[in-house]
Simulated scan of single mutants.
Amino acid sequence: MNSTVTPTRAAIARSWLLVPARSSEELDRAAKSPADVVVLDLEDGVPPSGKAAARVVAREWLRHRRGWLRINSRTSPSWRDDLESLHDLEGVEGVVLAKSESPDEVAATADALGGAVPLIALVESARGIARAAEIAASPHVVRLAFGRGDFRRDTGIADTPLALAHARSQLVIASRLADIAAPIDGPCLSTDPTRILADAAITAEMGMTGKLCLRPEQASITNDALSPTDDEVTWAEQVVARLGASGSGIENGSDLPALQRARNLLSLRAQLDSMW
C-alpha cells in the first residue's frame, strides 16, 4: 500500500470528520463537506456486529476516493482484521490508531502496514497520557489526537476546560518534544454553533491545531476557529514590515519572538489557502 498524503497536509489539517463506514452514500456526503480530512470509522462508530460489513464499505469506497481510516485498538480482536482490509488500497491517506497506550502498539501497527502509512495516535486513557511523549516520538506518528470521551470514562474527570487542561497540555508538550505537528483535540458533542465555536476556541487556547468532528456542519466552524484571523494576518504583516523579513529591524528582546510568530502565521495562512 502506498500513501501519497503530504506531511504538510496532515500537519495543518484543522477539521477531521469521523464518519462511520456504514454506507458509501454517507461517506460521499462527508467528502463534499468543508472538512479538511474525512476519517472513515471502523471503531466506536460501528457496533461489533457491523464491523465486517463496515470494512467492506470502507474498502470499496477507498478504491475510488481518498481518506483516513480509524481502526480498532491494538488490543482489540478487530485490529488485525482492520489492517488486513487495507491491503493494496491506494486511497488510504493515513491511519488513526484508537486507544493508543504505548509506542509498542504504534510500532506493531506501523509494521503491519509496511511502514508506508502515516499514523495518528489517538490517546484516550490515563496510561496513554502518561506515555504521550514516547508515543509521539514513535516513527510514522505524524500527530497525536485526544479522545476525551474515553479519557473521561477512564479517569472520571469532568468535561470542563480546567479538568481537561492537564491532559491536553501533556499532548501539546509531547508533540513539541517529538517535533511533530500540534495535536488534534476531541470532538464537540453539541449541534449548537455557539457551543461548537466556544469548544474550538478552547482547543486553540490549549495550543492544539486540529479537532475531531462528528458532524459535517461542525467542520466550517472548526476551520474558522483554528485558522489565522484577518486581524492576526494584518498584525503579522505589520510586524514583518517593521522588523524586516530577515530581522534587520530588531531593536529589543521581544522583537524576535514576535517576528517568528508573525512568520508562522503568514506561512500557515499561505499553506491553508493553497490546500483548501
Rank of each mutant, 00 (worst) to 15 (best):
V233M: 13
A126W: 04
S248K: 15
I221S: 05
L162G: 08
P139S: 09
S125C: 06
S169H: 13
A225E: 08
A121L: 04
A130E: 15
Q260F: 10
R261S: 10
P257A: 08
P228K: 06
E237D: 13
A167D: 06
P77K: 06
W79M: 04
E134A: 13
Q271D: 15
H140R: 09
A112M: 11
G114S: 07
T234G: 05
L268Y: 03
S220Q: 13
Q271W: 01
P7A: 07
R195T: 14
T229A: 10
R65Y: 10
D154K: 03
S138Y: 00
R152F: 04
S23N: 11
V39D: 02
V92K: 01
E60A: 12
G247Y: 13
G186A: 11
L17Y: 08
A136Q: 02
D104A: 14
D36N: 12
P139T: 06
A182P: 02
P228N: 08
T194G: 15
P34F: 04
V141G: 00
R269V: 08
I157T: 13
Q238S: 15
E90Y: 08
G253F: 09
E205V: 07
L226I: 06
S85T: 08
E25F: 11
D199G: 01
S3W: 01
A225F: 09
L18Q: 02
G249V: 09
M206A: 15
L42C: 06
E237F: 04
W235Q: 10
Q218V: 04
L164T: 12
A53D: 15
Q218M: 12
R242V: 07
A245C: 12
I71E: 00
V56T: 14
R152A: 13
A174I: 07
K211L: 01
L83R: 01
R176S: 10
T109L: 06
A52S: 14
Q170N: 15
T75G: 10
R168L: 07
V57P: 04
S73L: 03
L164H: 08
G186Q: 07
A13C: 08
V240A: 09
R153K: 12
V141R: 00
E93R: 00
A182W: 00
P77Y: 05
P216K: 11
I157R: 10
E84T: 06
I180S: 03
G149E: 13
A130R: 13
A158K: 11
P20S: 11
G210M: 05
H166R: 13
L272I: 12
A200E: 02
L89F: 03
R80V: 12
P228L: 07
L243R: 11
R74H: 14
I184N: 02
R215Q: 15
R168I: 07
S190R: 10
A52D: 15
S23D: 15
V117S: 00
S246Y: 11
P187T: 05
P187S: 07
A167V: 07
T155H: 05
V142W: 00
T160N: 09
R59F: 03
A245G: 15
D192C: 11
D159E: 12
I180A: 02
C213N: 13
R242A: 14
S227K: 04
P47W: 10
